[in-house]
């Protein structure tokens, strides 16, 4: 058996050709001419489209770029930007850098835990909300800072935070 023939043995949970996220990914791969060196850019597109990198997507990318599966998996697990698990439809990133920590980041995390039963790195069972921490997002003047769905909010109180999160979840 050679490496070329064995690629067909990979079981693909069929990606739906009509799924707009798959179309976006296919277009990106075409734009990059199926070049294996474009792996990181293509993974970026997939991560942004799906919110994480499901195994079927990794198989698809490996086949399209003719890259060994282990090389793709190695790249995905090396960079923190990529995630193999869903981070949640909405995300709340609490900065726990020194300034934010002093200004009460822990109180924010405690409030989130009591309100949504979520610890950093966890996602609600309905996949609506995920919570994460960052060491420092570089917005120390805004301490304590959080990032809700890529939107930075500074000098937040625990109650503000719960209100903004509830607002985001309600809007879908």
């Amino acid at each position: 058996m050679t490496a070329h023939t064995t690629h067909h043995h990979v079981h693909t949970h069929e990606l739906s050709k009509t799924d707009p996220r798959v179309k976006l990914l296919a277009a990106k791969i075409k734009k990059e001419n199926h070049k294996p060196d474009a792996l990181i850019e293509i993974l970026h597109t997939a991560q942004n489209a799906f919110g994480y990198l499901p195994k079927e997507v990794l198989i698809y990318i490996a086949q399209e770029l003719k890259l060994p599966p282990s090389r793709v998996f190695s790249t995905v697990t090396f960079y923190h930007f990529f995630s193999l698990k869903s981070k949640g439809e909405h995300t709340c990133l609490v900065c726990t850098g020194t300034a934010c920590y002093v200004k009460g980041a822990q109180a924010l995390l405690n409030k989130i835990e009591s309100q949504f039963s979520l610890k950093p790195g966890q996602v609600t069972p309905d996949n609506k909300l995920g919570v994460a921490v960052a060491r420092c997002i570089g917005a120390c003047g805004l301490a304590p800072a959080v990032v809700i769905d890529n939107e930075v909010q500074g000098k937040v109180t625990a109650d503000d935070l719960i209100n903004s999160i509830n607002g985001k979840i309600a809007t879908i």
């Binding site: 690629h7 060994p68 282990s70 998996f73 090396f78």
Partner: peptide
């Protein structure tokens, strides 16, 4: 084979961290 993760979490993997016996390559 390739390497996954970084720091103390690094591990040698086959395919998508698939058991070696089920590797396609």
């Amino acid at each position: 084979w390739d390497v996954m993760n970084r720091g103390h979490q690094v591990r040698i993997i086959s395919d998508f961290n698939t058991p070696w016996g089920e590797s396609s390559t």
